[in-house]
């Protein structure tokens, strides 16, 4: 569903993403890890078509994000780390607007919005303007908006930051459920326990290069660490950092 082919993004002398190739299957939950400045956000910007690659290409559901952006983005639901929301709208109004931008009909928007507001416990704040929401409530609304058009690919950047335990639990359940139903989830996160708990496969990016990819067991084998994902992550990123220096 997501096909990344020899993707490279250079910012002058800096190679932010270096010859990245990766395929994420339909219904797969893929966690994308890496230290700060590894190139995760740049990769996500390339996946959503916000940036043009220096080389390589990204296919979403077979559509090249650069040459057929509308068809590719129609399949994507994207949640950035600091989502943009219209402060002076109410949640339902915001969802209606997003649904219209995705070309959904009014009936479907109303039906889906109602269900999502209930799932994310937003129905109790639906009469309030978004400007009064806490960070966690904003995050829940942002993911509701991303799920509204029932996307085939869900791309999420640091979703769990700012969510309370109940919100985190709801979010994990929804994502797991969506992946089971066939949605491809691409989650960039620093919270290793979330990746360990939810992901079918994990990719580790370091200095723009994909240094490891596989299941938990495969990563453990590759790193030589027996313990938790944290040990594997530290071993893999340390090794590459030392090699680079």
């Amino acid at each position: 569903m997501i096909q990344i082919e020899q993707l490279t993004k250079q910012f002058g002398a800096l190679v932010a993403v270096d010859d990245l190739s990766l395929a994420v299957a339909r219904g797969e939950f893929f966690a994308f890890l890496g230290p700060n400045g590894a190139g995760k956000t740049t990769t996500i910007k390339l996946l959503t078509g916000l940036l043009k690659p220096t080389a390589g290409r990204v296919l979403i559901g077979g559509h090249d994000i650069q040459t057929a952006p509308l068809a590719a983005r129609q399949l994507i639901g994207y949640v950035p780390d600091l989502p943009f929301l219209y402060e002076k709208l109410r949640p339902l109004e915001f969802l209606e607007f997003v649904g219209q931008l995705y070309g959904m009909d009014r009936g479907a928007i109303r039906h889906q919005s109602g269900a999502l507001l209930r799932v994310f416990n937003l129905d109790e704040v639906q009469d309030q303007l978004i400007e009064t929401f806490s960070h966690g409530t904003r995050q829940r609304l942002a993911i509701a908006a991303a799920l509204l058009h029932d996307p085939q690919v869900l791309i999420i950047d640091e979703l769990m930051v700012g969510l309370d335990p109940r919100g985190t639990r709801v979010m994990k359940d929804v994502l797991r459920q969506r992946a089971r139903a066939g949605t491809t989830v691409f989650l960039s996160t620093h919270i290793l326990s979330v990746a360990e708990e939810l992901a079918d496969r994990i990719g580790i990016l370091n200095r723009g290069r994909l240094v490891a990819v596989g299941t938990m067991a495969e990563l453990r084998r590759a790193s030589g660490a027996d313990g938790a994902l944290e040990d594997a992550f530290l071993a893999l990123t340390k090794e590459k950092a030392e090699a680079a220096s």
Binding site: L50, L70, Q74, Y78, F84, L101, Y102, G103
Partner: peptide
């Protein structure tokens, strides 16, 4: 602008 960035991730023509 944040809105511009957000709109560019949607199926909306640039």
């Amino acid at each position: 602008n944040d809105e511009t960035q957000w709109l560019l991730t949607l199926p909306v023509r640039a």
